[in-house]
Amino acid sequence: MKLSNEVKFNYPREDIWKALHDPEILKHAIPGCEGLTLQEDGSYDVSMSLGVAAVKGKYNGKVYMTDIEKPNKYLLEAEGSGSPGHVSMKMDCNLEETEEGCLLKWDCDAEIGGKIAGVGSRALGGIAKFMAKKFFDDIKKQLKKGAYTN
């Protein structure tokens, strides 16, 4: 499954970069996140509880950030599994300065297997877009509350 989009932020690129790399902000923005722990190697252990259509369950996984060019871009790689199936993804994240703040362009390629894949690619694509929107909206809400703003 391939997805891409862009998100406009009315905050400086540095603030968006910090928010996208802060475990506390991420924990509150990732849909269904029950735990997010930063490891010494820079990766994150994550546990989630999600429901996709009639398929619900808990997932445990790892998230890595590579190809980091602060504050311009990074590659996010994640893999997770649980009773409903497994997910593996790579997402290119590019942050650009704008007059209004920052523009984040992202491209994601995900492989989904198990019961969750039985939901169908059309439904999964819609659910993934909804979850991505919710994630970025929650990042914006936390920034509005004062995280990293001057």
Rank of each mutant, 00 (worst) to 15 (best):
M1S: 07
L3Q: 11
N5E: 14
V7C: 04
V7Y: 02
P12E: 06
D15T: 12
I16C: 10
K18Q: 12
A19P: 14
H21R: 05
P23K: 00
E24P: 08
L26K: 07
H28S: 13
P31I: 04
G32W: 01
C33F: 01
Q39R: 11
E40I: 02
L50D: 05
V52W: 01
A53G: 08
A53F: 00
K56C: 01
K58T: 14
V63G: 05
V63M: 10
Y64V: 08
M65F: 11
D67I: 05
I68E: 07
I68C: 07
E69R: 10
E69G: 11
E69W: 00
K70V: 14
P71V: 02
Y74H: 14
L76H: 03
L76A: 11
E77M: 14
G80A: 12
G82T: 04
G85Q: 01
G85W: 01
G85A: 01
H86V: 03
S88N: 14
K90L: 05
K90N: 12
K90E: 12
C93W: 01
L95D: 08
E97H: 13
E100D: 14
E100S: 13
G101W: 00
L104H: 10
C108L: 15
C108P: 08
D109P: 06
I112Y: 04
G113I: 05
K115C: 00
K115V: 00
A117D: 05
G118V: 01
G120L: 03
G120P: 09
R122S: 09
A123H: 03
I127W: 02
I127M: 07
A132P: 08
K133D: 14
K133G: 15
K134H: 07
K134D: 14
I139T: 11
K140H: 09
K140C: 06
Y148I: 08
N150L: 11
